[in-house]
Design a protein around this nucleic acid. Structure first.
Lengths: 241, 241
DNA sequence: GTAAAGGCTGACGTAACGTAAGAGTCAACT
DNA sequence: AGTTGACTCTTACGTTACGTCAGCCTTTAC
């Protein structure tokens, strides 16, 4: 196979293949007289390995070591890489917290009205709350919240039934058929009391974990349910947009 | 003030100041005949601004725009930046999940024994659990867990008292004096039943949020307590190492 | 035979500095 | 004045993983 074909198959660019060749990371099995690179099936497998480690955040240099040294301790590398990723995540969290704070301060009036609206609640501990509300407008949250609480009796029972069904499948992957079916019911239900775009639906899911009030209520049906629902809603939204 | 002084005050390198000068991001107020950069107090304030935005993950180019254009919509920039950070975090989470999975598979035997040890529990949903255990050896977790449950009556009551005290201050910042004092009691208590290095203490805190069993138990004393304890323990460990 | 499509090798650009290298400046001490 | 040590300056390459031309050759289809 020649470069373009490999590129198309693997999803990387031709330049990337050239680059990996230069680095000695992936040398084509053959080269024609004209200098064309010809890749073998084995080369393809190697490339997959490379892309796998690349997706884990390893540098090309590291990948080269890992793959060229069969005796290399991959497990150790994975563990330390995980450590690194975790540090990065911590840093990102710090940045997000700070940016939340800044946005909050800069909002002046808005913060005031929001505080009034939710007086009695203290969200200052949760930096993601503001974010989730912001991302798709908090009007939707408030509306939904209000409507949901307005409905008593029958609707309430129906809602609880869906929650229970969701709780049953919450240990399955969010992208499993069962999970998606159950979350689909949730979407349907919500749309009986309002209109939700996929985007709003996904945003609502974010709220479930971002806002303690939601989390607490939802998790009464099962530990971790809110989290599961967020994932499932995200998946659902992405499938149906 | 000359470069070195500014560097010392602000914590950046001399090279960085040179760099910012080149970019036109921070031009020193004066230059001596010999070409030495001389910074004013105002320059210092500018630098602080720069470092602030840098800490939020903005590129130098963006920072230049933000600071040079007084009419620039900073709020908008902050919001979109937050969005970006959030995406990055998602990507990192994906990577961590994948790496967890890989490590788990690669562990073969270890996974088996671990599964046996915790049969009945299903941790497959929580990719961070494995991680927290790994980072400082899961022997410590198991030991602590066992010992804590062995002690009944008096010790148990003492423990609960500390939990309650922690719950009371859980809305304060983790680095506040009250929080640190309370978490200090926790550290003392733990050391009456075992020996904990600061590192192990911090790791234990990670477990509190990583392992659902811990989170559930702890949060009975107050929503978000586990999370607060993790932060406080981290802070405590860093102060006392 | 010719043109389109694909391939190849340089080589510069990117972000934010780190790290010398070679050389001039300043203040203090002898 | 001379020297020395501490600073400072500019210049410029190294880093990461390719993207993006540019100029030129090969293969393939009509």
């Amino acid at each position: 196979m020649k470069v373009k074909e490999v590129a198309a198959l693997s999803g990387v660019s031709v330049r990337t293949l050239h680059h990996y060749d230069e680095l000695g990371l992936l040398k084509p099995a053959e080269t024609t007289e004209a200098g064309y690179r010809v890749y073998s099936d084995e080369n393809l497998a190697e490339l997959q390995q490379i892309l796998f480690y690349r997706a884990l955040g390893f540098s090309l240099k590291q990948i080269k070591e890992i793959l060229s040294n069969p005796s290399f301790n991959r497990l150790e590398a994975l563990v330390s890489q995980r450590q690194m990723l975790h540090q990065k995540r911590s840093q990102l969290d710090d940045m997000i917290r700070t940016i939340e704070q800044t946005i909050k301060e800069g909002k002046g009036e808005v913060t005031m009205t929001r505080e009034e609206r939710f007086k009695g609640f203290d969200f200052s501990e949760n930096p993601y709350e503001l974010e989730a509300r912001d991302q798709w407008g908090d009007g939707v949250v408030d509306e939904t919240n209000k409507k949901l609480q307005q409905f008593g009796g029958e609707q309430q029972e129906k809602m609880n039934a869906i929650y229970r069904r969701l709780a049953e499948v919450r240990h399955l992957p969010a992208n499993s058929e069962e999970a998606q079916k159950a979350i689909g019911e949730w979407y349907q239900f919500l749309n009986t009391i309002g209109t939700y775009s996929m985007e709003a639906f996904e945003g609502l899911g974010e709220m479930y974990v971002a806002d303690e009030r939601f989390t607490t209520n939802i998790d009464q049906f099962g530990q971790g349910l809110a989290n599961f629902m967020r994932d499932a809603m995200k998946e659902y939204a992405q499938r149906n947009s």
